[in-house]
Nucleic acid binder design. Structure first.
Length: 271
DNA sequence: ATGGTGGTCCTACCA
């Protein structure tokens, strides 16, 4: 039995719970990781998802900002979350999922966006983003993560690392999300954890690949000025069993859409 | 070159 996991920055789960239900109904991943739930802990709208067979929800939420959650058909064990940069921001939640034939440790992240000005001296939000990524390098390389077990890291990492992860490499080199200091750091996170970029395993690096389109475009699809801010990474053993990915671009056209679309990754039987 | 849209929750802040 294949295992399919999805990630989606929903930009308010309470406002868009009907879109979440539509997605789960029509794409039926085993696990869905959400970011920017913007929903206080304990107020996650799990009812409609239970009805669709997603009986397991692990959430870490706060009022107004951030917030992450894992929604699953399969039982979730060892739920935990970590604070980064000494803040209580809800930007990480982890759980272990028992697939039909194995166990997979899942990490769901919402990396700080970083504000507008890509200068850590002038912009404390950008400084926070860089600090967060540096802490992720250390976390990724730590012994706890190096064990020989199946691991998946997903989320809105707010960095588009490759040239063709943005609509114009040249124009975006000075735009937060694609500056060299950010893309270098994300590369260090990937290397430190021996992660595989599962999306790029299936889509060659010279092909454009986006998961986010700004709300500010007159016509997002016509201008198609997107970025790949959302990611699916896996440990090496799992990467070898990765069967494909899907970017659900049509979700950007749904009524009251999020500015991010879901990404689904599949892994074959022996997982 | 600038401002464009959308979320939270009521006033500005964040994306």
């Amino acid at each position: 039995m294949p295992f399919r996991i999805a990630t989606w920055n929903i930009n308010s789960v309470r406002l868009r719970i009907d879109l979440v239900a539509r997605f789960l109904k029509d794409w039926s991943p085993d696990v869905l990781c959400l970011q920017e739930t913007k929903c206080p802990q304990g107020q996650f709208p799990s009812g409609p998802l239970h009805e669709l067979g997603y009986r397991h929800v692990a959430e870490r939420g706060q009022k107004g900002y951030h917030g992450v959650a894992i929604v699953s058909r399969l039982p979730l064990a060892d739920v935990e979350s970590r604070n980064f940069c000494g803040k209580d921001d809800c930007r990480h939640i982890a759980a272990t999922v028992a697939t039909p034939s194995s166990r997979v440790e899942i990490h769901n992240f919402y990396v700080p966006a970083g504000g507008d000005e890509p200068d850590p001296e002038a912009n404390e939000k950008f400084a926070h983003k860089l600090d967060f990524l540096k802490e992720l390098v250390a976390w990724s390389g730590s012994g706890a993560r190096a064990k020989n077990r199946h691991r998946i890291l997903v989320g809105d990492l707010n960095v588009a690392p490759l040239e063709h992860d943005v609509w114009s490499h040249r124009d975006l080199l000075k735009v937060v999300s694609h500056t060299p200091v950010e893309t270098d750091l994300l590369g260090r996170v990937l290397a430190a954890g021996k992660w595989t970029d599962v999306m790029r395993q299936h889509v060659p690096a010279d092909r454009k690949l986006y998961t986010w389109w700004s709300y500010r475009a007159k016509d997002w699809a016509q201008s198609d000025r997107g970025r790949r801010l959302d990611h699916v990474w896996s440990s090496a053993g799992l990467a070898g069993r990765s069967s494909g990915i899907e970017v659900v671009r049509e979700a950007r056209s749904w009524p009251r859409a999020s500015d991010h679309v879901p990404v689904i990754a599949g892994f074959s039987a022996q997982v």
